[in-house]
Write a protein that binds this DNA or RNA. Structure first.
Lengths: 338, 338
DNA sequence: GCTACATTATGAACCGTTTCAGGGCGGGCA
DNA sequence: TGCCCGCCCTGAAACGGTTCATAATGTAGC
């Protein structure tokens, strides 16, 4: 089945010719139908249907300048945390008849740049981005050129750029404090690379909690870097840890997907949770409470995060605001005292 | 912090003026740098940096015509099934340096249309769509106008439109067969509306399995329509069922999120799974195996689905192909014989 | 020294819209 | 009757790039 030799899409001029009117009139039918006599309008509409005319968005935008779309760049589209945030964004945008385009950078600064450029070149009203690196120079540049930018899930180091984040230092602290209270003194932290700010912050929080009770992080904490922040990554990391012979009594995971991989592995290795090993996750995703060992997790207000980020872009595109939400700890079986 | 009175973004003409060359030369630096003398190129590049010039994507596309982006419209961006598919699409596109934009229709035909138009007007190379309705007239129209269309997760009723799907009739049949083999003769099916083809098909499969063992669907099957296909929807549906007094011994859920809601509710209501009630889900998402009662589920090759859909768009945009994958049943505790 | 040709830069045409000044026309009012 | 006004419609300019025929310049060959 070959395409019928793509005969160039019909343009407004074709429609005008077919309807026996001028291009201006066709444009009016499209944009201000009330300014056109019903009879004329019908003829134009018939021609549009006849030629199956579709507006050329590029030309339209080139001339008109505006577009009611905003873009979001997240780290991993398969992570429930980000998709929950995306739902929040969508919900808010819907109220203003804006549309959302989501792209996933996969932690790759190159991909982030590519999508950033794509969005900017196409003139979106604003971009909500979870930066893949600590360096936001390129984001500041985008902002300077006039496109709205909101940093998501990470406090802005630049007061001129808005951000909507959750206190990750506090999140790390909450988790560690809790584990310490349960009597653990040897904790493994399956964390992402510190180039991701959230990871660095959570680590800082953990260290803070240890210091508060007089523990030396060098002794009490083993940090393991998980390369892919999903179940497979968690599985690989915990296996590495088990094989190393280093045996902490608790594992704190940088997100619930990683924790899922850990739980899965511990079960196949017959290591009982929480008796032999306590586990704490992060994000409190929907399924955390329903796991074979219900997972203790740090909850973030994901939906709110998205709503707020979209709100900043829509209502105050020229103002920079910094919103910081507080995480809470949801304690479940996976970290009960042995 | 007000924006510095948005002084109109620099255009290629501004760059040309600043560099003392013609617009054609600037365009060449941008697109065929090898055709420009190194000295000239450097001057132009300096001017670009100086003015922080960003190409206007609309103008570029208007004239040049092509764009290496494809769009995907899924039913629910928060459903792991769709995001797993999206990862597959991304992976394939990456190989050809294409970019993916994802939008979520939320089961709403109006939103689907909106995004479809947005994508088409902006001239994407192709659109991968999970149709929200049975009527694909509007998709056929898009295809006729020359944009590639691939139906995802739903066999194409039109041989001219490609599709990549999983046999949903078979999926429903597998689940029902299994429950029948476990001795259940009263089954509840928490299904989505039949306007969603997948739901209608799975229902057909269930009926087929019942008929094969001589059971009357009128007697053996209670179908309940879940309005939102997530954990909350599942929770509401199963509560409704429990209150109705109608007591089947098994529940088949249209996806794992719904099943999650069901498991959660049954636990709070102290109904033991699988002893008092067997549960089967659909999609076999990552966490299905790790739930408090590991969930029996119908597995679909999500990643492959995405890769294949993208592949069709990239390698044979003018050919229609119909790919049908087969689902498999993964049996776990939630449906063990009482 | 002249021609032929390669290399680099130019500038205008063009893509398909929106927008806006202006033209034709009929009706209301003095 | 003449004038003004409002309503519809027209046609061309403008948006910001890419592309291509052409010009200008340098280089090689005879």
């Amino acid at each position: 089945m070959t395409r019928p030799a793509a005969p160039r899409r019909a343009s407004i001029a074709d429609v005008a010719r077919a309807a026996g009117v001028s291009v201006g009139t066709v444009s009016n039918v499209l944009n201000r139908p009330d300014r056109v006599l019903p009879g004329t309008r019908e003829r134009v509409e018939a021609a549009i249907a006849e030629l199956s005319f579709v507006r050329n968005g590029s030309a339209r935008q080139l001339r008109a300048g505006t577009i009611t779309t905003i873009g979001a760049i997240v780290l991993d589209i398969a992570n429930p945390f980000f998709t929950d945030v995306a739902r929040g964004i969508e919900e808010r945008l819907d109220r203003d008849d804006f549309t959302l385009m989501v792209a996933s950078s996969d932690d790759d600064p190159g991909r982030e740049q590519r999508y950033l450029r794509l969005f900017e070149e196409h003139g979106v009203q604003g971009i909500i981005v979870v930066p893949a690196t600590d360096d936001i120079e390129h984001l500041q540049a985008v902002r300077r050129r006039g496109t709205g930018v909101v940093l998501l899930d990470r406090p802005s180091p630049d007061p001129g750029i808005s951000s909507v984040a959750v206190d990750d230092v506090r999140g790390g602290e909450l988790a560690a404090q809790h584990l310490l209270e349960q009597g653990h003194t040897r904790i493994a932290f399956l964390n992402g690379p510190h180039t991701i700010r959230q990871c660095a912050d959570r680590h800082e929080g953990v260290v803070k909690a240890l210091a508060a009770v007089g523990l030396d992080p060098e002794q009490a904490l083993t940090e393991i870097t998980v390369t892919s922040l999903n179940a497979e990554g968690g599985e690989a990391a915990i296996r590495g840890l088990l094989e190393s012979g280093d045996q902490p009594t608790a594992v704190f995971c940088v997100n619930d997907l990683v924790a899922l991989g850990v739980l899965r592995t511990l079960r196949t290795e017959n290591i009982a949770v929480p008796t032999d090993m306590a586990v704490v996750g992060y994000d409190d995703v929907a399924f955390a409470a329903e796991l074979s060992t219900p997972l203790t997790s740090v909850r973030q207000p994901t939906h709110e995060l998205g709503v707020r980020a979209a709100d900043l872009l829509l209502t105050a595109p020229d103002t920079a605001e910094h919103v910081m939400f507080q995480p809470t700890l949801v304690v479940r079986t996976s970290s009960a005292r042995p």
